[in-house]
Design a protein around this nucleic acid. Sequence first.
DNA 1: CGGGATCTTGAGGATGCTCAACGCTAGTGG
DNA 2: CCACTAGCGTTGAGCATCCTCAAGATCCCG
Lengths: 255, 255
Amino acid sequence: MVSCQPKKVSGVVDIMESATPLSFIPDNPCAACEIRELSICGTLQGDEFQALLDILRKQEARNRDPLISEGDPADYVFNVTSGAIKLYKLMADGRRQITGFLFEGDFLGIAMYDEYPYSAEAIGRVNLCRFDRRKLRNLLETFPKLEHRLLSIASNEIAQAQDQMLLLGRKTAREKLCSFLMALSKRMEDRGRDPSILFVPMSRADIGDYLGLTTETVSRTFTALKRSNVIRLLEGNRVMINEPDTLQDMADGID
Amino acid sequence: MVSCQPKKVSGVVDIMESATPLSFIPDNPCAACEIRELSICGTLQGDEFQALLDILRKQEARNRDPLISEGDPADYVFNVTSGAIKLYKLMADGRRQITGFLFEGDFLGIAMYDEYPYSAEAIGRVNLCRFDRRKLRNLLETFPKLEHRLLSIASNEIAQAQDQMLLLGRKTAREKLCSFLMALSKRMEDRGRDPSILFVPMSRADIGDYLGLTTETVSRTFTALKRSNVIRLLEGNRVMINEPDTLQDMADGID
DNA sequence: CGGGATCTTGAGGATGCTCAACGCTAGTGG
DNA sequence: CCACTAGCGTTGAGCATCCTCAAGATCCCG
């Protein structure tokens, strides 16, 4: 789902108090990481952070690169540092349901299973931090705070999944698309960015498979929203929200 | 539409008057509990279990009793010890999406939020264990094992939610109902019970609101399955599965 | 510039919804 | 004990939303 973790407002971790200041770690790959506070790394200090660093590997992916595949042994978990990815499930005849889009700061593979319960694919260029799952599990036992953080992330994910069930089961095509756009907008707002200009990197087909619609219906609904002047389609897969209140009402089924 | 006049919540039975060692507690409410291994209590030993006991209260509910309500302060979490409950979200105009059914052993309120993200209602007679959420949260800090257990439960819930998204977004009415019945059957099997006889305590309307269908469509689909001899409807809200393999194929969209 | 992928638009059709009627059962009160 | 009622389940007829199939239009990347 469109992940909207609340912006961390409680301030950045005070590195100076920690046993090993961040700046003193040689070749620290996280030194320039923009999204530390958003990800699981944000809660950690000193040796906890160092321990996480030890099991971290950087990884890059390009458009359509498969990251994980449903049924494969779940050897790694990931943190998206830049770009976007999609999670999906397939049926035998090829029908696809995208269960979520992840953006920078989002965590992939929270479900602690031996096999991945879904597949994941890059949308455009993506940078990730990859963790060995077994080593991470060991870390969880050493640092309960890390596990607490994961539970918090999981709670978020469950709440979002329930919103998505309401959307898929009970909303009309227009309500679905408006909800999707509002979720993207809210995410921008949470990150302190302009909530009226959205970057929508995924294709119409992806959006359709996320909302339980066909590409044609997504396209038609976009056109209708455009014509009623609620949104505008801009260059480079960007969407401008003209009337956020109307969009919100449409998402909620309020005429 | 959804006529749910809030009946008054049935009385709470306060059983624990004092903290006494587990094995010496007279009328220990958990002593005869059939489902300890299924629930969060199962992982705990000795003083951990005692600590959980201290913040536990038994609660009963009857059909349609509201247990929690979306938006209310999340003061309690629950464990279902017998019976069934439904979780749901409502839209402004009354459209309802049931996000899950819970049965004995299931945990309600895992998402650690300040407000409940959904409502819950009893289906028939229900027995619950109720925990003060803030005290439970304190316990989590003392006993990491408890938090580990919750994370495992949350992981399960996320995987289930994703299956449900595939169902809601991409499956036909028949596939939906067959998937629902197979899920009930699998649950019976996991509990070591006959997977071909299902107890289906919820109404057609509930099933519809869970599967993103209307009551009429659920009823018609039941009739069709009955006519093709895949299932039989028995007395007392019971369903017999005649051809589990066919049912599974129908659930997966395999002709 | 060229060509494949993506997006848009149109026409027709099917799945599942709406509206309506009726039967069945259980609970209630005379 | 039975009539009455309310809720639930079933079935039917008609219809709306969204899907399918098809053809252009547009974009993008080499």
